[in-house]
Write a protein that binds this DNA or RNA. Structure first.
Lengths: 119, 119
DNA sequence: CCGGCATAGCTCAACCATCGACATATCTAA
DNA sequence: TTAGATATGTCGATGGTTGAGCTATGCCGG
């Protein structure tokens, strides 16, 4: 596709880290909250994504502590991660605008959720 | 990921068909135009995506003609395809808004393109 | 007249991110 | 005491994209 693009789960991981550092499980919960309970990210996706994003330099380990004999790591966005996410959101908006424009040109009338009331 | 999501190339195919029916090659050109020349979609991606979208009922064959002894098919969005794209663009906007909000909370200041001038 | 590029459609192996299932361990509330 | 939340991982399967290759015509410039 020429240009670099994030997959949705990957983008959600970056989004979950955009305001503050978090550890893995907290990211899962945050994603659930962000998406209004609609998206339950799988742990397999999460931990492989975290490894990949570390390698790519989009996130870094913010903090490490041992809890109950187990390592807990907090992750944070790097500057590059912030810029990547910012770029991605610009791309998404442009894509959404374009799709809307074209749907309208094609005569599509969106079914309203629960406003624009008749009565 | 619980919820159904479109990959970027797939979404671009639907977007390219949102205003009017087109045949394969025209979709490639349209995608290039839509993305301001930044995205050159591969034919391998396109034709497999078209097959998949036909099967899923998001597009249909609009028109078929034989040009130079070769079948040329035009594709159009189905109602389901329009609704899927509309739903997707709503999801993208929500995702973009959320990412922006969080980046701001995290203290991210986007590097301006070429406005907000200092002088 | 010939070479190259645009137009046009399609296949296929490889890649890689996600999925779904499994494994493990502690803490807490019913 | 048993189920569910907290917490971190691995691994094979799935599936959309990638990149390369194949075929063929029309057209424009040298």
């Amino acid at each position: 596709m020429t240009e670099r693009q994030l997959h949705e789960p990957t983008r959600l991981v970056l989004t979950a880290l955009a305001d503050a550092p978090r550890h893995g499980y907290a990211i899962l919960q945050e994603v659930l909250a962000i998406t209004d309970g609609r998206t339950r990210m799988l742990t397999g996706t999460l931990y492989t994504a975290l490894d990949r994003l570390l390698q790519q330099g989009l996130i870094r380990v913010d903090h490490e502590e041992v809890v109950n004999g187990r390592l807990r790591r907090s992750f944070a966005l790097t500057e590059q991660g912030q810029e990547t996410l910012a770029g991605e959101l610009r791309r998404l908006r442009a894509g959404a605008d374009e799709a809307e424009r074209r749907l309208a040109l094609g005569g599509f009338r969106p079914a309203l959720g629960l406003n624009g009331g008749t009565a």
